[in-house]
């Protein structure tokens, strides 16, 4: 008798929106795809001088071996090849961006909760997305969703000019403190609505959005330089998203490409909504 009520639960469970949350997991190997050619840098802009204190020097730490093992096992073996990216992943002390209670999980290849409903991204995803940007030293990059600050730090190992926006004030402040402690003096971060980008600092050679967005924000497309690249997860916030690479050619024409499915935590704030 009572079991027939399972019918109730199964059919009432069909009510209302039930997004298709899928547990976050390692994405598959990216399907073999033609690599978009590297953008030509805009020719009419003088390169800014690289600051003398860049890149920051890190103190040796007891996690260096684990970090190196993580890069070899979880990143290189999954076809991330760009030398500056791999160097950056070996250099940035991920454990410094985690809550103290989670430090032991710092070099596992999975996201970890950092409080305020957010997570620090899986290292493979950080490396893969960074590689897709094809960053060179001297390029200017915008990050939407500072979160723990880890991604911004990885970017700042490749190029000094990193701008990062975070909608949650406590996270924005915390990441600022960590940047200062670790010597990332060239990262400019602020609290704000990332949907609108950072118009005063733009345009940017690259833009990276590190939380799920329901659509590609037009203001960000406008702030991308001709020849620039943007990477962002697009899709329902509590389900699988597509990692989208957007490129803008020298004539300003934009093109997008679906890379692979990913699972980012919902971005709270202006970009966070479901379809």
């Amino acid at each position: 008798m009572g079991a027939r009520v399972v019918a109730l639960l199964l059919f009432l469970a069909a009510l209302a929106c039930g997004q298709d949350p899928k547990p976050e997991s390692s994405p598959p190997k990216a399907p073999p795809a033609k690599k978009e050619p590297a953008p030509e840098p805009a020719k009419d802009v003088k390169p800014r001088p690289i600051p003398a204190d860049w890149p920051p020097k890190h103190e040796p730490d007891k996690y260096a071996a684990r970090r190196s093992r993580m890069v070899t096992k979880d990143i290189e073996r999954r076809h991330v090849k760009d030398p500056p990216v791999l160097r950056a992943m070996r250099a940035v002390p991920r454990h410094r961006f985690m809550p103290k209670a989670k430090v032991a999980e710092a070099y596992e290849d999975r996201p970890v909760r950092i409080g305020h409903g957010q997570t620090i991204s899986q290292p493979y995803i950080v490396a893969s997305m960074t590689e897709e940007l094809q960053l060179k030293k001297g390029m200017k990059v915008l990050e939407i969703g500072t979160g723990s600050g880890y991604q911004a730090a990885v970017l700042a190992e490749i190029t000094p000019w990193v701008y990062s926006i975070e909608i949650k004030r406590p996270l924005a402040q915390r990441s600022k403190d960590v940047f200062k402690e670790l010597g990332y003096t060239t990262i400019k971060s602020r609290h704000g609505d990332g949907y609108y980008g950072w118009k005063e600092a733009g345009p940017f050679d690259a833009i990276i959005v590190t939380a799920a967005a329901p659509h590609i924000p037009p203001p960000l497309v406008k702030q991308l330089k001709p020849g620039g690249r943007m990477i962002l997860p697009v899709g329902p916030r509590t389900a699988t998203q597509d990692l989208i690479l957007l490129t803008k050619d020298m004539k300003g024409k934009t093109r997008t490409r679906s890379l692979y499915p990913v699972r980012f935590v919902p971005l709270t704030g202006s970009l966070g909504s479901s379809d």
Binding site: Y195, P214, H215, I216, P217, V221
Partner: peptide, 12 residues
């Protein structure tokens, strides 16, 4: 600041 617009053009 929600900016909810499924299917919005990136050129909108």
């Amino acid at each position: 600041g929600l900016h909810y617009a499924p299917g919005l053009s990136m050129l909108a």
